[in-house]
């Protein structure tokens, strides 16, 4: 894959580039500021890019805004956002266009290199990948409590893992269930939430998150 890395801290950028190249992917460009990031994204049109939220010149949410602007011009451009902290607010903004190809992770997720590269590949394929911390926040907040109140505990955890972007098979492995048992849970869960089932895992995630996104 051709990848753009946008990160202002040298050590992290360098580490990330080495990690990505160790897995046989190619880093075509790096960026260290918000405007540079937007420029790199639009010039190189990478298969996927890794973008830090906070970058110079203002040290505010430059990276996030560059990513949103790039996706505004090229809908569905696959971008994985990295940050020191996760906010539901940002997750909702990233998911708002419903185009997929979005990831949102805490920076320490790169500790688990396999999972990180896996998430990158999922995003590049147009899927969605969310940090478990984001999902936990989404599922525990007041606005979703009411809607999710009817789910059983097991359905709740299946929904959480599904929202992270996992397939039924992966969820089954994590919860020590058979794949058919998981699909039984998802069917009953979708029934309770009023979402029509669909085999495509990406669309399931989008449906779940779009549902949580409702004001």
């Amino acid at each position: 894959m051709r990848i753009v890395v946008a990160e202002d801290l040298y050590l992290l950028r360098d580490g990330m580039v080495r990690l990505i190249e160790a897995y046989g992917h190619q880093v075509v460009a790096t960026a260290t500021t918000g405007p540079e990031t937007l420029d790199a994204l639009l010039t190189w049109r990478p298969d996927v890019s890794v973008v830090d939220v906070r970058m110079p010149p203002t040290q505010s949410d430059e990276g996030l805004r560059a990513a949103l602007a790039a996706r505004g011009q090229v809908p569905g451009m696959p971008i994985l956002i990295l940050s020191q902290h996760v906010e539901q607010l940002y997750a909702r903004e990233l998911l708002a266009d419903g185009a997929g190809g979005i990831g949102y992770f805490l920076k320490e997720s790169v500790f688990d290199a396999d999972q990180f590269i896996d998430a990158l590949e999922r995003v590049a394929a147009g899927g969605t990948a969310m940090d478990p911390a984001v999902i936990a926040k989404l599922l525990s907040s007041g606005s979703s409590n009411r809607r999710l109140g009817r789910l059983t505990e097991r359905e709740h955890s299946v929904l959480g893992l599904m929202a992270e972007g996992m397939s039924n098979q992966a969820i089954g492995r994590r919860l020590f269930l058979s794949e058919s048992a998981v699909s039984k849970y998802t069917t009953s869960m979708f029934g309770k939430l009023g979402i029509t089932d669909d085999d495509d895992s990406n669309r399931r995630v989008l449906a779940v998150l779009a549902y949580l996104n409702e004001p």
Binding site: V53, R54, S60, E87, L89, R92, S141, N145
Partner: peptide
Amino acid sequence: ERGLVDAVRALALDSP
């Protein structure tokens, strides 16, 4: 990153 209004929005989203 976002100022007061969005920060309070984020707070409201995280609140039970």
